[in-house]
Design a protein around this nucleic acid. Structure first.
Lengths: 147, 147
DNA sequence: ATGGCACCTGGAGTGGGCTCCAGGTCAAGG
DNA sequence: CCTTGACCTGGAGCCCACTCCAGGTGCCAT
């Protein structure tokens, strides 16, 4: 079990020194042990926890909820059901996020195709494509402003 | 082509009245026509544009970049190539976002399974599962703090 | 002993994206 | 005539998640 300087941790995790200190301040990281000079010495369990933090942040969990999770983790094995519940709920949110993102990506791609058609039509006014993407309210629509 | 009050637009698009005014102020919405009393009257092209805005915002495009896109749209047909380029670049970012989200979701699900195993092991200390999720650095790891 | 470097602290500042507020205008209804 | 409600304006305020800063400590190499 190695020990790491703040600089190394920043390097490895991608969090800035300031962010690491900030995370400790707000209790997202438990108080980090110090060497004689008062400098932080991180260990593998911190690295691993920071990996989790990165993952949760990256999927949109708020700092507040991560702190809640951190408290459960510190609360010991009795909190495992609660941790599962929290992660499952988050997992469902991520699922939803992905679904929405895909839908919206689809709309963007339809829009791109529409623009392509407009361009093609301008170059070759023979064919008769380029009607508005067509769809429900969710059309995301014509610019209706190419005056 | 109908005309809509701010209240109706807020209702339909999910943007608040304040947000609609804000978007107009910053140029994300072109100046909206007014009735005699100075109240905004939106039309279908505004609704459609707001749909686009919702889609771009929802996929993480910044306000600044949306304003850039809005300017292109106002710039007329000569800007279509640029619009395609902008949307394609955004589309790639969305693709990446989805990929990352999936990876991270996977890690979360592994963590959930790990917790489940811990629970199972506690209930039935016969079987020998519940090793750490196993993997590369990306393990997202043990809490290593269930002291 | 002098400089440089990595780190420390408490606290202030930043940027993005809204959100709220006070005070005012109009139109319709009782 | 008075209220109510939907809307208007300019400008201030808010929340989140950092990020920056000034001033200081300890250690090592020149």
């Amino acid at each position: 079990m190695s020990v790491y300087t703040p600089g190394q941790v920043a390097e490895e995790t991608g969090f800035s020194l300031d962010t690491l200190r900030y995370y400790e301040r707000i209790g997202l990281l438990e108080p980090i042990e110090r060497n004689a000079a008062g400098q932080r010495r991180f260990n593998d369990s911190h690295l691993s926890w920071l990996g989790m933090v990165r993952c949760l942040r990256g999927t949109g969990m708020s700092i507040a909820e991560m702190i809640r999770f951190a408290q459960l983790v510190r609360g010991g094995d009795g909190t495992i059901e609660e941790r599962i519940a929290l992660l499952e709920s988050h997992d469902r949110e991520v699922e939803q996020q992905i679904a929405e993102l895909k839908e919206q990506q689809d709309a963007i791609q339809r829009k791109i195709r529409y623009y392509r058609d407009v361009l093609a039509l301008a170059a070759n006014p023979a064919s008769c494509q380029a009607a508005e993407p067509a769809g429900t309210v969710e059309t995301v629509g014509a610019d209706a402003s190419s005056r």
